[in-house]
């Protein structure tokens, strides 16, 4: 355990996050995060060990009980385990994968999660993300790596008007400011 004086810090701790009816931003709860890379055998074994299915292709994120696996590429997934301890979870997964070549890397601190919600959430994201975020094109549960203007993000739709965005921590204040600016006066629909 960290010493008492050593408290976890967030890159957003000094920022005022928008919290209106039309648009709100919130940091997601602390989570263990891993980038998992490997072939099909490793994917199957990791799905079992992690407890949520690592999707085989671009599309909906695999999700089960506060654990989610997002497809980033054909051999690359982002694992998010809310509230979990990354050291012990990492050890559990490694133990289940001794026979399948793979790479499991702890990125719990590399990035933060941002919940973007409200009727203009999709519009604000579309200020920097060139993907079609209409529900018919980007349904609830869809997850992908993409960009927001000059920052790379992973975008995961949690509801019609709610998105979970993963962003590297030094880009997070920029993303927050750019989203807040884009949401201001944005038309709905």
């Amino acid at each position: 355990m960290p010493d008492a004086a050593v408290a976890l810090r967030s890159p957003l701790e000094r920022l005022a996050l928008p919290a209106g009816d039309r648009f709100a931003l919130a940091e997601t709860p602390p989570a263990a995060r891993f980038v998992f890379r490997g072939g099909e055998a490793a994917r199957a074994a990791c799905s079992a060990a992690f407890g949520a299915e690592l999707p085989a292709r671009l599309g909906l994120g695999g999700e089960r009980e506060r654990r989610a696996a997002l497809w980033l590429g054909p051999d690359e997934w982002l694992l998010i385990a809310e509230g979990a301890d990354s050291a012990s979870l990492g050890a559990e997964i490694e133990a289940a994968l001794v026979s399948a070549p793979h790479s499991l890397v702890d990125v719990s601190h590399r990035q933060i999660g941002l919940l973007v919600s409200g009727p203009v959430a999709a519009r604000a994201l579309s200020a920097g993300c060139p993907l079609d975020l209409h529900l018919s094109a980007f349904p609830v549960g869809m997850a992908t790596r993409t960009i927001f203007d000059k920052a790379e993000i992973a975008l995961w739709r949690r509801g019609a008007t709610a998105f979970h965005v993963e962003v590297w921590r030094s880009f997070a204040p920029y993303l927050v400011a750019a989203l807040a600016e884009a949401a201001r006066g944005a038309p709905e629909g």
Partner: peptide
Amino acid sequence: LKVWLTSTSEQW
């Protein structure tokens, strides 16, 4: 080669 790369620039 069986090897994979992951950026950890901001992890540490």
